[in-house]
């Protein structure tokens, strides 16, 4: 029983998600292209480094909006899921697979819409068209990113649903966004230690997105061509291991889903 088509449709037709994951992110890209770039002498390789670092971090933020959306949907659906796993053909595995399918498609779509936005804005600002260097790699990384964020948000929200109670749901739903923001922005300005660059899935993803767009490996600080380039193999291994671990955990939690009443989540 696979529901990936309706889940994909529900995600693709979610106007709020489009606003926050694309329009709002477009605003930040515009800040990067038109405001933050003031006073910098950018051309050729330096322009590509600069634009690519913005693209990589903005895709992280955009995917974390997908995570917020998934977490929010699950708080509304705990009763439906508990019922469906007992009294319909839906299984936790097929549900997970359906949401994975939708998230991968959406990750791909968001990433490529933001490629267009990055290319367009920087072309307007600098008169130079920047196209992604390795499209197949970006397809793979975007799909993987969508699945990673989905597994992360599902794990976090299922911990809330099963053990903490919905009062925490509003806050926990933002954890992926907070980590994306903190680690993505930090990598843009600070030389993070290697264990964090390779061990953090957010930085793995940002560095791989950078390499896919630029066509060469990222330096430890995104967009700054100093320091030894990061190796794509351990970066890929890092994000894959995190995704597998979170997938296993969320499936385990999904099989034990508790029913919560929405009103429980009301803050005041």
């Amino acid at each position: 029983m696979n529901l990936w088509r309706p889940y994909t449709k529900a995600m693709l037709t979610n106007r709020a998600l489009w606003f926050w994951a694309v329009v709002f992110m477009g605003f930040w890209l515009a800040i990067g292209a038109f405001v933050e770039s003031q006073g910098l002498s950018l051309a050729g390789a330096s322009l590509r480094d600069y634009a690519t670092s913005w693209y990589a971090v903005i895709v992280l933020f955009s995917l974390s909006m997908l995570a917020v959306s998934i977490a929010n949907s699950m708080t509304y659906g705990s009763g439906a899921l508990a019922y469906s796993f007992r009294f319909t053909r839906l299984t936790p595995e097929s549900y997970f697979g359906s949401v994975v399918g939708g998230s991968a498609v959406l990750g791909f779509v968001l990433s490529f819409v933001l490629i267009g936005a990055t290319t367009g804005m920087f072309a307007v600002r600098f008169g130079s068209v920047l196209l992604p260097a390795n499209v197949p790699a970006l397809v793979g990384i975007s799909l993987l990113g969508g699945v990673f964020y989905m597994a992360l948000s599902m794990t976090l929200i299922l911990v809330v649903i099963n053990y903490l109670g919905l009062k925490s749901a509003s806050f926990v739903g933002f954890v992926p966004l907070l980590f994306s923001w903190a680690l993505g922005v930090a990598q843009s300005y600070v030389r993070l230690p290697n264990w964090l660059l390779y061990g953090s899935p957010f930085n793995d993803l940002a560095s791989l997105l950078y390499q896919g767009f630029a066509g060469y490996p990222s330096a430890p600080v995104l967009g700054q061509a100093n320091g030894a380039a990061l190796d794509w193999a351990p970066l890929t291994l890092g994000i894959v291991v995190w995704t597998v671990l979170l997938t296993g955990t969320s499936l385990w939690l999904l099989r034990r889903i508790r029913v919560r009443q929405l009103e429980e989540g009301r803050q005041i």
Binding site: A10, T13, S73, G79, A80, L81, S84
Partner: peptide, 9 residues
């Protein structure tokens, strides 16, 4: 009603 809140479509 709560068991039919599976997907927003």
């Amino acid at each position: 009603a709560e068991v039919y809140r599976l997907i927003s479509l």
